[in-house]
């Protein structure tokens, strides 16, 4: 019993560690006072002000757009890379490529950011593209470093996928492209979805790489938050963060509901099969 008590305390402590900061943020987003740490009574005025704040909303919108686009691009490229690594046998330099795909995972972001900046500047001088830095360059930069994560996820899924499924499809008359879209893709779809979500999240909270490759007109949300910290955080940011959290939490909740339903369905089916119905 005593043991249980201790364990329960440890549990509570762990969860508090995780969630108190978030709870505090939500709590202060309803604070009347401008001072972040002083409670001045309940109010939703920061939410109202937030809706007027074009700079903040613009940054949030830009961040979401960049995250969605770069996640999509990196899923496409990462799938291709993962497929090449997992499927095309032992081509020359395969080990080298296999190692190189994971390098961006451990590369310091500052270096990634700096090298991309150099690349963009050089490209602009050479061929006149990208024209200045902005949403395009941020998207490209985010794609480069999130692609590595996606490729690793897809590759490990493909390695565990029985290759004879693809061979069977080919044996039954499907051409390789068809095999990919009808067999491989549907089976690895969950890995692709989680790769997309991971890329989206990584892009959404990146501040270092974005700082290097963004231009004057394009500031992402993390950059705005990060720079505003120096001047004191406006409670509007608390409000924005709360809103985003609600959106994310709702998304996760719906996803897990769907997954749980599928799981139950599968269990029922399996039971039916066992009973030989």
């Amino acid at each position: 019993m005593k043991q249980m008590g201790k364990l329960a305390w440890a549990l509570w402590f762990g969860y508090a560690f995780l969630y108190v900061p978030i709870a505090l943020l939500i709590f202060y987003s309803f604070n009347e006072s401008r001072l972040v740490t002083v409670w001045g009574g309940f109010s939703t005025k920061w939410y109202a002000e937030l809706l007027q704040n074009d700079q903040l909303l613009g940054a949030a919108w830009l961040s979401l757009k960049v995250a969605a686009m770069s996640a999509t691009a990196s899923v496409v490229l990462g799938t291709v890379a993962g497929l090449a690594l997992a499927r095309f046998g032992r081509f020359r330099g395969r080990t080298l490529f296999g190692g190189m795909i994971t390098a961006p995972l451990v590369m310091p972001e500052v270096i990634t950011g700096l090298s991309l900046l150099l690349l963009f500047v050089a490209l602009e001088q050479a061929i006149g593209w990208p024209d200045g830095r902005g949403m395009t360059t941020i998207t490209i930069a985010h794609t480069t470093f999130t692609m590595a994560y996606v490729a690793v996820i897809i590759q490990s899924r493909l390695v565990s996928l029985d290759e004879s499924l693809e061979e069977a499809a080919m044996d039954l008359g499907a051409r390789p492209a068809k095999v990919f879209f009808v067999i491989t893709l549907p089976i690895i779809a969950p890995a692709i979805v989680s790769g997309w979500l991971l890329a989206f999240t990584l892009s959404l909270d990146d501040v270092v790489v974005a700082s290097f490759v963004s231009g004057p007109g394009s500031t992402t949300l993390p950059m705005v938050i990060f720079s505003s910290v120096k001047f004191g955080i406006s409670p509007q940011i608390n409000a924005l963060a709360t809103l985003m959290m609600v959106v994310v939490a709702t998304g996760i909740f719906i996803a897990s509901l769907v997954m749980a339903r599928q799981d139950r369905q599968r269990k029922r089916d399996e039971q039916m099969a066992v009973q030989g119905g």
Binding site: D162, S164, L165, E167, A168, D171, L172, I183
Partner: peptide, 11 residues
């Protein structure tokens, strides 16, 4: 046509 040792049914 080949029937695979592992059956290779599309899941």
């Amino acid at each position: 046509n080949m029937m695979f040792q592992s059956y290779a049914l599309f899941p």
